[in-house]
Design a binder for these strands. Sequence first.
DNA 1: GGCTTGCCTGGAGCGCACTCCAAGGTTTTA
DNA 2: TAAAACCTTGGAGTGCGCTCCAGGCAAGCC
Lengths: 155, 155
Amino acid sequence: METTAEATGTDTDVCVAPPEGELRRPDGRDNYTISEVVAFTGLSAHTLRWYERIGLMPHIDRSHTGQRRYNNGDLDWLGLVGKLRLTGMPVADMVRYAEMVRAGDHTYRERFELLEATRRDVRERIAELQDTLAVLDRKIAFYGDAGRALASERA
Amino acid sequence: METTAEATGTDTDVCVAPPEGELRRPDGRDNYTISEVVAFTGLSAHTLRWYERIGLMPHIDRSHTGQRRYNNGDLDWLGLVGKLRLTGMPVADMVRYAEMVRAGDHTYRERFELLEATRRDVRERIAELQDTLAVLDRKIAFYGDAGRALASERA
DNA sequence: GGCTTGCCTGGAGCGCACTCCAAGGTTTTA
DNA sequence: TAAAACCTTGGAGTGCGCTCCAGGCAAGCC
């Protein structure tokens, strides 16, 4: 028996923030076709199937004819995957994480460490980007001045 | 005649911050072999040649036997390229920018706009990452609690 | 002279993350 | 009930950013 929000996705939201970009997920449902998930996540159906093939997804329910039926927990998981993707984390690492989740409670420590390492990476990346922002600001200021200088030369 | 820091790379540093990571560039020199540039930038020689082939670099001087001789302006440019690379800007866009620089002063406005668009992207990306950071913080807190709970169960 | 080291070239190859295809079954709409 | 829309699969293809290879030239050293 699974005991974590990770596994069930139905606990109070300790897991992943509700989506913000794509399409708001309706409350009171727990069963979505692949095209609905496409609408919610912005991922393609191809990508969703591919995620499943490579082991990035938990087991996805099927209808009696074999079509995928995603639940809210699956959507939560895809939300996390989406966030991690933004950090540039390789898909292979996410698969490792997914495997740990499937493996059960004894992987808590490992998961914790992977998340902490990821957090360090994200912080570093933010710092890099802020650095880059400073460079851009200086360059843009320079271009602004040069533009004005050119304009007054012409005048 | 070129009139910009972009083109000469020798003006006071309106262009790119001095490097920080790899290897400090010695002052008083203006002539480097490809392997020195490798040491300064962390890029591979392959990549440096490839950048040149695709039009991402300005004209690079050659020794009398045809070997590349990079100058400080080239290194400044590579510094900017490195920063832009961190933002996820496609190499093709950087090539467009490089082409504008080579095309001359009449592309100022366009370059300015490209830089501003890039800055917007970077700001957005920072916001995304901070969002992701919040998710990671919550998840890590959750794992911390769960870890403690598990530990006390076992005790 | 021979050996090593560093550089040159065009072009092929690689890893990643999708993305699409062909051929077929299912569900919904008119 | 027939057409249109949607879903399934395994496997092939794509685009990006390198990365490497083969074959060769040039300079320094014993």
